[in-house]
Structure formats: structure tokens, C-alpha cells
Computed example of a mutant assay.
Amino acid sequence: MTDVLILGGTGWLSGRIAQRWLLSGSTVTCLARGGRPAPDGATLVIGDRDAADVFDIVAARDWDHVVDVSSRADHVRAAVGTLGDRAARWTYVSSMSVYADDATVNADETAPLLDAAEPGTEYDYGAEKVAAEEAVRTLGDRALIVRPGLIVGDGDPSDRFGYWAAAFLRDGDGTVLLPEAGDRLTQVIDVDDLADFVVATTATGTVNAIGDRHPLGEVIERVRTVAAHRGDTRAAGDEWLRAHDVEYWMGERSLPLWLPAEMTGFMSRSNDRYRAAGGELRDLDATIARVVADENERGVDRPRRAGLTRDDELELLGLLD
């Protein structure tokens, strides 16, 4: 029986990973702040990673596998320093945001990285992940660094992929504003495929965990079909959207998945190593169907972390006319 420690285990991705370990018959301990429950069957140890003694309880024993998802380099360094000798295997979930080159298509795990964050400097997600990776690499061939791209699925707290489902659902027979997709691509990975990979793979080193490349316009249209949108769509170009304060990729007043033309490599990276390491990818339409159902259940007019409100969308469509 595998004895697993998850540093987290109560969030969206880390909770799915904990559930997969439990389904495999492993014993799972989650170290988290306690604001959310651990999955049924897991042991929850309450701890704040800003505290110096946070690992005291879990450092008193050996672990077959430690999984960490933190985006704070100081947290990761402290975990490696305290628990590294206690872990037979260590998996760190990093991000493709570590890469410095967003232009090269089909770049693999050897692509150049951002400069690692220095202690005491202003927080930068990608740079923090780079610094965290450096700490994990000191564990040598016991360590796996997984670099996911855009993670999607039901319950996604980022609201990025789900925005398109919500937009088509809420507008019904109205008009939906789209970016001009042209020949741009998008890549996503289902949260359950990622969780399965973390649990099942025996790979070490670094792996880009991302799905296959799909034309952006085709993916948005597939979401529209599943959402049974009956209205029209209107597309706006990059310059027009920027001139009207529409952000790309994420955040408030944004069109998620849309990226500037110069970022051709951001959503077109190689997933060859993921495939070779046993990573599987479910049919994208199955993921889309789950996301559409989830958006219906959670409410398409709820406050969102990404996308346009319907009022903003209507205002922009009026200006586009």
C-alpha cells in the first residue's frame, strides 16, 4: 500500500489527485490550512505553511510519495528541506508559465525558462514556479516535475475555459462576442487526466502535461454546439479588443483563451514526453460536455474570475456595430 502525503489536497486539482490516490488503494494524508475538507477517506492535518513548525507532525515518518502544488517558492524550499529525506518519490506540479519563450511552436521541456524568483522580490507566478522547481531538482532522480498547461473541467475556479460555455448558455438566442481566431491554436488538459497522470506515472525529470493542439475557433464552436446556442456570433480583431480594454487569456473584462498573435507558442507546446510517460487524453467533447453541465449547475450569471459580463459584452457588441 502506498503511503502518500499531499501538501494541499483540499483544492480543485490537489483534491482530485487525493481522490485518485484513494481510489488506487493508497493511504492519503493532506496537509492544508483547514478551510476546506479533505476528500472522504483521507486524513487531514491542519497546518499553515507560513509557520516554521508546519511540517513537524508529518516529518516524523517516511512517505512513499509526496505531492506538492504550491506556487510559493519559499514554501516548496521549506518542504524539500524538511521532508526531502523522508520521501521515496516527490512530485511537484509546476506550470508552463515557467517558460520564457512564448513564440516557438512545438517547444519541449528543454525550452528556456524565466529567471527564478529571488527571495524578497515582488511575487511573479512564473518566476516563483521556476525557483520552486530548482528546489525540487535537488532531490535528483526521485523527483518528477509536471508542467501543466491550461487545466480545465468541472469545478474550475479560474473560470477561463468555462467562460465560453457560460457565454453561450446565458445568451441563448443572443449574439456572443468572439476574438478573431484565424489560425490560432489552443491546448488544454482535463483535470482528471492530469490527476490520473500524477498518480499513475513512474516518470521522473520534467514533463509538459498538456493536451493536443486544436484550432481555437474550432474549440469555441464545439462549446457552442454542446451549449445549443441558437444566436449569432460576432468576431473582433486584436487591435479593436485592446483599444476597448478587453484583456486576453484571463481576468476581469477578458476573452479567455484568446492570445496575441506573437504568443503563438504559448498554446502549441510539445506533449510528446507526456504521451511517452503514459499520459492519456480523453476526448475533448467529453470534457466540454462536463464543463457545460457544470456551468449550468453553478449558474451562468454568477460572478466570475475571467470573461466578460453580459452587460460588458452587449456594450462592446454595440460599439462593434
Rank of each mutant, 00 (worst) to 15 (best):
V66N: 01
V226H: 00
A32Y: 03
A228W: 05
W90C: 02
R242N: 05
S71C: 11
E134H: 14
W21E: 06
V246G: 03
D68H: 02
V130M: 08
G279D: 08
L7W: 04
F197H: 13
Q19S: 13
M96H: 12
D321Y: 03
R224Y: 03
E122V: 15
V300A: 11
A52D: 12
A131K: 10
V219P: 06
R305M: 11
A143H: 03
A131P: 10
V198K: 10
G265P: 14
V67Y: 03
S158V: 05
W249H: 10
G140R: 11
V28P: 01
R234E: 08
R36L: 07
G41S: 05
W164P: 05
V223K: 09
R20H: 05
I288C: 08
L7K: 07
E180C: 08
V130G: 03
G9Y: 07
A203H: 02
P119L: 00
W240F: 03
E297Q: 15
V246Y: 04
T29A: 02
T10R: 12
H229P: 01
Y248M: 09
Y274R: 13
G172M: 02
P157H: 00
G205F: 11
A73F: 11
R282D: 00
D156L: 06
L31I: 08
D193S: 07
N296T: 13
V207Y: 07
G11E: 12
D154G: 15
R33C: 08
I151W: 02
T309F: 04
L185N: 12
D108W: 13
A143K: 02
G8E: 03
R89N: 04
T2Q: 12
L320E: 07
H229M: 02
E280Q: 15
M263Y: 13
S71K: 11
D62M: 03
D245A: 14
T201W: 11
V67N: 00
T204I: 13
E180Y: 05
V130W: 06
V176Q: 04
H244D: 00
D301N: 14
D171L: 12
G318P: 01
V292T: 09
L319K: 14
V67C: 07
A276Y: 09
A135E: 01
R230E: 12
A165K: 13
R16S: 10
D285H: 09
E297G: 11
R302T: 11
R230V: 00
T264L: 12
G153K: 05
T10H: 09
L83F: 06
S158Y: 00
G47T: 10
M267V: 08
E218D: 15
Y274L: 13
A236Q: 01
G265K: 14
A59F: 05
D294W: 13
L7D: 01
V45W: 05
S254Q: 09
A100N: 05
P37Y: 04
D272P: 07
V93T: 13
L44H: 10
A117H: 02
D48Q: 11
P148R: 10
H75S: 13
S94I: 05
T91L: 05
R36Q: 09
T206C: 12
